[in-house]
Amino acid sequence: MLELRLVQGSLLKKVLESIKDLVNDANFDCSATGFSLQAMDSSHVALVALLLRSEGFEHYRCDRNMSMGMNLNNMAKMLKCAGNDDIITPSRPMMAVTPSPSCSKVQVRFTCCFAQDKIADFEMKLMDIDSEHLGIPEAEYHAIVRMPSSEFSRICKDLSSIGDTVVISVTKEGVRFSTRGDIGTANVVCRQNTTVDKPEEATIIEMNEPVSLTFALRYMNSFTKATPLSNTVTISLSSELPVVVEYKIAEMGYVRFYLAPKIED
C-alpha cells in the first residue's frame, strides 16, 4: 500500500517539468522515509537524483519498499491537468496482489482546492524498467558556489547562444563562466556578494582550492528547468568528480543533477 497526499500540487508539477526532458523513463522508489528517484540520461553523461522526504507530505504511508517505473513525459502530462493549488494524491493500492509490475498502474487523484466537489481521477500504466542504481558517496569538493538560480539560468542561456561548452572556474576572484564559439568568446564573472537585501540573492563561494572544469551547455540548460523549484542553486565542483547542480525543495528534499565533465583525451 502506498498513499501520498501533497497539498501543494504545483511542487510535483515543477519536479516533473525539471527532469522529464533529461530522463524518459525512471523508477520512483518509495520507502517509509520518502520518495526518491535516480536516473541517468540516455547518453549516460548526466544523472538526476530526486528526494522528497515523507515529512514533507501531509499524509504519507508506504507499508513496504516499492519501485514504480514511470514514463516521465506521461506523468507530466497527467500532472498538467492539475491546478497549481490542487491537492495531489498518488496511490498504488493493488501492489501486494499484482503479479507483475509491468501490468500494474498508479492512481492519481487531483482534488481542486477551491471547489471541494470537484475531484479528478487518473490512472497511469506503470512500466517495468531495468535501471541501474549508482552509488554516489559523500565527497569533498574543491569549491561550492551558491547563487540565485535565476542568475545561473540566465548565464547558461546567454552563453549557449555563443558556444556549446562552458568552462566553470573558481578562483579567489570569484566564479567565472566562459565559452567560445565561431562568433567570439564570452566571460561572466560572479564575485562573492553577501551584502544583499534578501539571503537568496547572495552569491557565496566556498573555495578549498581553485578548480576549472568544462561542461556541455546543453545539459546545464536542461538542469535550469528546475529553477522554479528554488530561488538558489548550489554548484559543487571537484576536478575528480562530476559537477553537482542542486536545487533544494523547501523542507522536503532536493533535485540534484550530476554532469560528467569534458576531459582531455
Partner: peptide
C-alpha cells in the same frame, strides 16, 4: 582534444 566523460566513469553500480 576534449572528450565527454560518462557518469559511470566516476560512480559504480550499487
Amino acid at each position: 582534444i576534449e572528450i565527454q566523460a560518462g557518469i559511470r566513469y566516476y560512480y559504480g553500480k550499487v
